[in-house]
Design a binder for these strands. Structure first.
Length: 136
DNA sequence: AATATTTGACCGTGA
DNA sequence: CTCACGGTCAAATAT
């Protein structure tokens, strides 16, 4: 939590204009280095992170995402290893309002209702393909 | 003010 | 019955 709050900051307010660094990396780990702009596989849907846990079984961090829409029983799980850029995305459930407006921008797929993809996606596997010959 | 995001704790299941 | 792991919710915080 770099910018996470921080107890005791006003204490000395001694003004110092210097504020802490301000990193806005969407992904944890890898402070910056500005090397690898790690970006998560945006599927066109918007997700809200509702949890993160370190799975000991695989020694990996798993993040839990859920579709912003309540009518959507779609869930997404992303796991990566502490020190590896590769990401593993696991999709669960299917959206009920279709419209993956691929647009990276918001938009809400809601707009276009059209119900397009209605397939039984139950647990799809998304491999990062990076240097992680993890085969399970 | 609302929304998104974070961390911690709690719960449920399995062994 | 107890312990452990995985998963989800809740509260707090940041923007």
């Amino acid at each position: 939590m770099a910018s996470t709050s921080q107890p005791a900051m006003a204490t000395a307010g001694s003004g110092h204009g210097d504020e802490q660094v301000q990193r806005q990396a969407t992904w944890p780990e890898e402070a910056d280095g500005g090397s690898q702009p790690l970006v998560m596989p945006e599927d066109g849907y918007q997700w809200k992170k509702y949890g993160q846990k370190f799975i000991k079984n695989i020694q990996k961090i798993r993040s839990y995402f859920r579709c912003r829409d309540r009518r959507c029983g779609a869930k997404k799980k992303v796991e990566w290893q502490p020190g590896d850029p590769s990401l593993r995305v696991v999709y669960d459930g299917a959206h009920q309002h279709g419209s993956p407006s691929s647009s990276s921008s918001h938009g809400g797929g809601g707009g276009q209702d059209g119900d397009g993809n209605r397939y039984e996606l139950s647990a799809q596997y998304f491999g990062g393909g990076a240097p992680t010959p993890q085969a399970r």
